[in-house]
Design a binder for these strands. Structure first.
Lengths: 236, 236
DNA sequence: GGACTTAGTTGAACATGTTCAGGAAGGGCG
DNA sequence: CGCCCTTCCTGAACATGTTCAACTAAGTCC
């Protein structure tokens, strides 16, 4: 079985030990994601992945703890793509609203091709104990990277806002982004237009709220909100 | 196999045709929910349910399309229990904030015994295409019943508020309740105290916002928000 | 070079959700 | 009663995620 079946990275026996394993891992991941895209998540069997990749079923389990774990690779990729797609806005725009809007739309753009099957495996991410949950320990690198985008949104903007709020805002915006994503998953309007409308409608509201945060009169209300967040976050 | 195995409702052969089937259905559902509670959802096999109920595996599939569909029974029950638990507050309290707070706490109370395994099967509810999704067609009876509770919260309260908002508020509060539930699922603080704190902190804020809705100055902002909701809801 | 270690790989075996061809069994109808 | 239809029920068979004992071979150490 040494003839070339695909042009893709087939592990070459000549490669050094470490690299060889990494090659196999990538091959399995690539194959899996391709099949997920082509047939959907549930319809893709581990046997099919293994066969298509030219390895034994057990080998896939040597590199990935479970079928679900293959999805993590998808997340990592999408996260990087979001960052890249947001880059122009983050370097070009200075107004808070425009930055936020651009970043959110970039996120939707990046996800768009996967909408149909993202919904299919979204369920696995929703389980709190799942490593795929956006709040899980295993997701924390991807999560931190995602929050970093929103920190960039805030810090690179010309908007002046309450310093307390400034500290919390990136994480709150990320949470909002999770909300948008949740909405997006459920949104089956053509081209997910409702999600776009949600973004376009919500961003000005958020912008106005954020601007209001500096008003002396609203200080107590803001403190109350921040205190609530703090108290809810506390884990006891 | 005609000896009595449990004291519970075993289908009596003498019962009329229709009722007999219903009895079996109930028996299977009871058994399933009990085992879910005792062992957890994933750990309970269909074979175990069938064996425990004294029927064949196929029989369970005659009454329930899938293992997930057994959960719907759990929802229906919980919904009714929520209504019942909220009753005292809804008849006794007249202030909006107190009513809302009471209803939300009642909801958490009702769910509390199931927290550990609710999380386990929450994932199945999260899939948009699943009949268990709170937004699905199959869930609409339970959903409508739940929204009705929040309509009661609004209509039975002494609070005066913008008529436009009044129309939308029950559904918005229900959505908020879904948010609280989502938070609750992820909340593993002892006795889910964080969820309680979230409710206690958020209700006054909502109460204040709702009261503000009548201020002339805020009219444009309110209209903007309502328009956003309307536009997002539109399915095109 | 030879013994040893360990990463990498295999495929059969297992567990469990689901299906399905078929078999009772009650009740209506001639 | 005898026939038939529908409801209810059965358990073996199937599909698929996962495990595991065993094997291969690349590297390491003496």
């Amino acid at each position: 079985m040494t003839f070339v079946t695909t042009a893709a990275a087939e592990p070459s026996p000549s490669a050094p030990r470490r690299a060889r394993g990494e090659q196999t891992r990538q091959l399995i991941l690539e194959t899996a994601l391709r099949l997920f895209r082509e047939r959907g998540y549930a319809e893709t069997t581990m046997r099919a992945i293994a066969k298509e990749a030219g390895v034994a079923v057990g080998n896939a389990y040597y590199y990935f703890d479970s079928k679900e774990h293959l999805i993590q690779g998808f997340y990592d990729r999408n996260q990087a793509a979001h960052r890249a797609a947001a880059e122009p806005v983050l370097t070009g725009e200075t107004e808070f609203a425009a930055r936020l809007r651009g970043v959110l739309h970039a996120g939707v753009d990046v996800n768009e091709p996967y909408h149909s099957f993202a919904a299919t495996f979204f369920k696995t991410a929703a389980e709190p104990s799942s490593p795929l949950s956006p709040f899980s320990r295993e997701s924390s690198p991807a999560r931190d990277a995602s929050i970093a985008i929103f920190r960039d949104v805030v810090e690179g903007s010309s908007a002046k806002l309450d310093p307390e709020l400034r500290k919390e805002l990136p994480e709150l915006l990320w949470l909002g982004w999770m909300g948008v994503t949740l909405f997006w998953v459920y949104d089956n309007s053509p081209e997910q237009r409702r999600t776009r409308r949600l973004i376009d409608g919500a961003v000005p509201l958020i912008d106005r709220l954020v601007a209001l945060s500096r008003l002396r009169v609203l200080r107590p209300a803001l403190r109350q909100i921040l205190a609530l967040i703090e108290s809810v976050r506390r884990d006891d």
